[in-house]
Amino acid sequence: MTDRWHRWIWLLLAVPGTPAVAHDASSGLRGLFAGVGHSFSTPSQVLCLLALGLLAGGLVRSGWFPWLGGASAAAFLAGLAAGHAGLPVDAPLFAAAFLAAALAALLPGRLPSVAMGLLAAGGFLLGISALPDSGTLVGKAVTIAGSVLGAGLGLVCIAAVADAITARFAAPWVAMGLRVIAAWLGAIALVMLALTVAPAG
């Protein structure tokens, strides 16, 4: 069962991505794909998704995983409902990415309630950033649907790949390698946070 699940994840990863040209909403498949790509269109979104995915990946085999997924999905939708296009969410996204990556690096698979809080916060911010700038109502709806799909699939894929790697390769350095990668992501996110909030000049 688990093997079949992992095979599907590898297959999904093999599907070629579309370029992220998403800030306008357009209807039809083009709008849907633009929405899917939108969740990966800025460094803050990519770092946040990667960090949250690695954090969730450490908890895939715990009973908490459905709750983590539910919390982040609900928060994403809440962010969509609460936000409006153009809100500056880069700094909070970098902060969420740093905290999630630091937790994944230092205490992987532990503190599930803190992980749930971070996944909810990250989901909320990703939801806000997923709103298209302009377009028709139908176009916006299609693009938002694509964003929900892209962010959700992205998070699940990253978590599943992290879990699949640790499950398939039992050597301790493999799990530690993921922690080192999480530490690198956290470091990059913190530097980007400083660059975002530091006074210019």
Partner: peptide, 19 residues
């Protein structure tokens, strides 16, 4: 050590960026 170093190094980098 390679997990701790980059995370703390980033704190130092943030201090440098912030002046």
């Amino acid at each position: 050590l390679p997990v701790v170093f980059p995370l703390v190094m980033a704190v130092g980098a943030a201090m440098g960026i912030a002046g």
